[in-house]
Design a binder for these strands. Structure first.
Length: 490
RNA sequence: GUCCCCUUCGUCUAGAGGCCUAGGACAACUCCCUUUCACGGAGUAGACACGAGUUCGAAUCUCGUAGGGGACGCCA
């Protein structure tokens, strides 16, 4: 197969935000397409009328956009107007296509109308379970002549259309990540293709769309592995060419159960809100089931594209390790150029309402000071609070220091020294000199000297180096904060 | 219940019969740097689920057992 013919797709159902598992599936498909100069298609699987919403579709599109996983065909990320030669790309708008396909199988007797009710199906399921058989339906309508079914339909009654599984044989799937997987055809019963509402069911529309959209490779989650049998039957029935499949392992939570809401943040949207970088999230999830051939842990999108290959995909499930994600994120964050990092933390700072200098040199210096203590963009809020003009809350952990006998002397000397400084902002040298003179005048050294000064600046005994911090603070702010501490001491 | 898939340090993984006294990364721990916190640097500890077989030789191949996961829907 020539590279330019590679066509892959990501086909989410629009129910809620994009899940990290879905993001990984999308990423692998995207990487594979880019690696081979192929096309990446976004198809919306909105056939579940009860759960699918337009709003969810917008949210998922926004998440995909945030991750930088852009598609060549599908709804336009801004206008939602569909682009590409194989549309529509929303399954809810392809019903005539599905109906036409169902009619074809109806005509050849490979499918039939089924009038069973939910209650009847449930009774059969229970009975099958009890008998130790797979809970498959055995429709009494499977051998009805089509004319008889049509008469009943004419009365206004609704029917689902089921595929008729007749031949007993083994289907062998050559899976890109699992090797040969054999499915006996009796693993499934006659399955529904079209609901009585006329809406298609996943296995039906998925197979038809993949075929019609000329999809060549399908990377999807493991939970679809056994679905593939039904889809293989359909491909056979329509005489369509089967794409290559690669079934990805699922992502687990720390308790080794399938990752879900109760494990904490599972949507890309939440990671976005919590200050994670899209490049870091991509990096981290890519490594959950795939490895770089040269063992790279920190890897850019371009490098992943250059290195991606399905034979490095891992079939065993992976636990989502929040701690490693934090490290990956911190590493990407610290590697960002100053202007870029500032651009990204700005919304968080703005939201916190801080008043700060706008001088680029000041910003750059502040970033240098704080970025080694930031794991994510949101962390900037607590850090920049120190250098904003806002009043500094004095923490409980400062109490002990406030109780030391020499603290008052040190803080008073500190305040006096700041007042005496000629410039609006002290330099590192000025600060160091002042610190030295306090040591002499107050006659204290070591932590008895440093801790009270620190408390007078940030309200707590631990944190960023003072010689870095002080030059970032305006004289007035420094004095106001010293006063605050002094008041507490009285 | 039936069928399918999976099983290397706590976690992500490398490993395609001899290169493995099993390598890397995160986390942990120790030390160094440092007034504190972080960053950074140097180290330490830590795994082939179990049992048979094939082979001169098995983490790698086969079978079985156990554990985990998935599917069995007019959900996707």
């Amino acid at each position: 197969m020539s590279d330019t013919t590679v066509r892959v797709r990501f086909a989410p159902s629009p129910t809620g935000y994009l899940h990290v598992g879905g993001a990984r599936t999308a990423l692998y498909n995207y990487l594979f397409a880019k690696r081979h100069g192929g096309k990446f298609i976004l198809r919306i699987e909105d056939t579940d009328e009860a759960r699918s919403t337009e709003e969810s579709m917008r949210m998922q599109i926004a998440d995909l956009k945030w991750l930088g996983l852009t598609w060549d065909e599908g709804p336009d990320p801004e206008t939602l107007i569909e682009v590409g030669p194989y549309g529509p790309y929303r399954q809810s708008q392809r019903q005539s296509i599905y109906k036409e396909h169902a009619d074809r199988l109806l005509a050849t007797g490979q499918a039939y109308y089924c009038f069973m009710t939910d209650a009847e199906i449930e009774v059969q399921r229970q009975q099958s379970m009890k008998d130790g058989r797979p809970p498959q339906v055995n429709s009494p309508y499977r051998d009805w002549p089509i004319e008889k079914a049509q008469e009943r339909l004419a009365t206004g009654e609704k029917a689902a259309i089921r595929y008729k599984v007749v031949e007993k044989k083994d289907y062998v799937l050559q899976d890109l990540v699992r090797g040969d997987v054999t499915f006996p055809s009796d693993m499934v019963g006659d399955f529904v293709m079209l609901r009585s509402s006329g809406m298609p069911v996943y296995n039906f529309c998925c197979a038809i769309d993949d075929a019609l959209m000329k999809i060549t490779h399908v990377f999807r989650a493991e939970e679809h592995l056994s679905n593939t049998l039904r889809q293989m039957m359909l491909y056979e029935a329509f005489n369509y060419e089967l794409p290559k499949f690669g079934h990805l392992s699922i992502i687990l939570g720390s308790d080794r159960q399938k990752l879900s809401k109760r494990h904490g943040a599972t949507s890309c949207h939440e990671y976005n809100l919590n200050g994670y970088l899209p490049e870091a999230l991509n990096n981290f999830i890519a490594l959950l089931g795939w490895s770089s051939p040269n063992a790279q842990e920190i890897i850019s999108m371009d490098e992943m594209i250059a290195q991606f290959s399905p034979d490095r995909l891992n079939a065993s499930p992976a636990v989502f390790d929040e701690t490693k994600l934090a490290w990956v994120n911190a590493t990407h964050l610290r590697a960002l150029p100053d202007e870029e990092l500032w651009r990204r933390i700005e919304p968080y700072l703005k939201e916190a309402g801080f008043k700060m200098p706008t001088d680029p040199a000041w910003r750059s210096r502040a970033l240098d000071t704080f970025k080694t203590s930031m794991n994510n963009l949101k962390d900037s809020v607590e850090l920049f609070r120190y250098v904003s003009e806002d009043a500094m809350p004095i923490g409980d952990d400062a109490k002990e220091i406030l109780g030391w006998p020499t603290t008052k002397t040190v803080v008073e000397a500190w305040k006096k020294g700041v007042e005496a400084s000629g410039t609006e902002f002290m330099t590192e040298e000025q600060f160091l000199k002042l610190q030295d003179s306090i040591k002499d005048s107050a006659g204290v050294k070591g932590k008895n000297l440093f801790q009270p000064i620190r408390v007078a600046i940030i309200g707590k005994p631990q944190g960023t180096e003072l010689k870095m911090l002080v030059p970032l603070l305006h004289k007035h702010t420094l004095i106001a904060r010293a006063d605050e501490v002094l008041r507490k001491l009285l």
